[in-house]
Design a protein around this nucleic acid. Structure first.
Ligand SMILES: [Mn+2]
Ligand SMILES: [Mn+2]
Ligand SMILES: [Zn+2]
Ligand SMILES: [Zn+2]
Lengths: 154, 154
DNA sequence: ATGTTAATGATAATCATTTTCAATAAGGAG
DNA sequence: CTCCTTATTGAAAATGATTATCATTAACAT
């Protein structure tokens, strides 16, 4: 198992917060640090299972929960009835999602990011005050059909 | 069971699409038309169950699915592991949500609606073209702590 | 009033996620 | 390096929301 810069950073984060660095955690961190997909717990379990058949699905869930708590990964739902996880890059900035209702394809975007940041900063400030609401984060999802799926309907 | 204007409209929509107008559907439509909360299937089932103990949870789910398909109600998820439903008002315009991560309180807002509509129209147009994506709708969720829950942390 | 068939409700099945608990191993103390 | 404490793991069972089955019922067109 080779570790890259990102997974080493994440390991450090775990250790400094007092968590033990175990083999399953190392494997999961390493795997996550090398993909930019939005994966299901089961996806991660199956991929890892080839080289590490001893790591159980339960542990994958537990590790994902932990990483979410440490803000190292994000957890999303797109109405599929199961959660998807994605690395919280410091490389890849904050971004939003396009979700294809037909095939489940997910597109990240952060175009308009200047406009958008300005807009959301403004609106968050306004909403916080008006509704006395302490806003921690936001999600923007666009739903529709991707190129391929749209063409398929002749 | 007294019906109001909104539930009569919805009944008409069902009938014109060729669906039968049954007692359970009438009861569920009537109930939904009189609340502005974001309810779980179980919530609806339990409320209705007092006056109509013969209407089953299965039927509630089936009716909600149907109403979503007809765009009479919206289905949302806020990361709770279950879906919430809300009437699609023509009275209440398109709006977005604040969700309290502590107590689950949901706040609707449609302030900034002019700015926001303009902004989302623009961004949707851009994204559609750039990613060749046929956008049907969008959701914006702000997550954080409501007034009460924020104060509770001393 | 009658027949066709969509809709219902009780029950069982699914499926993602969580809990339990005995066995293991990380990492600090000596 | 060895020992000890206890966080972590994995197998299995439990949970909880949603869906599928299927025999029975009732909407509504004729
Ligand atoms: Mn993403
Ligand atoms: Mn709402
Ligand atoms: Zn697609
Ligand atoms: Zn709250």
């Amino acid at each position: 198992m080779r570790k890259n810069k990102k997974s080493i950073e994440m390991e450090k984060c775990l250790k400094t917060q007092g968590f033990r660095m175990t083999l399953p955690r190392r494997v999961i961190l390493d795997f996550l640090s090398k993909t930019d997909e939005h994966l299901l717990a089961k996806d991660i379990y199956l991929k890892i299972n080839k080289n590490h058949p001893d790591i159980g699905l339960t542990t994958v869930y537990r590790t994902l929960d932990l990483l979410v708590k440490l803000s190292l990964i994000n957890k999303f739902e797109f109405g599929e009835g199961q959660s998807r996880y994605e690395l919280t890059w410091d490389l890849k900035e904050h971004h939003h999602h396009l979700f294809c209702l037909k095939c489940g394809k997910i597109i990240d975007y952060n175009d308009f990011i200047d406009d958008e940041v300005k807009f959301f900063t403004k609106i968050q400030k306004f909403l916080s005050k008006k509704y006395k609401f302490n806003i921690q984060n936001h999600e923007v999802h666009f739903y529709g059909k991707c190129n391929q799926c749209h063409e398929l309907l002749h």
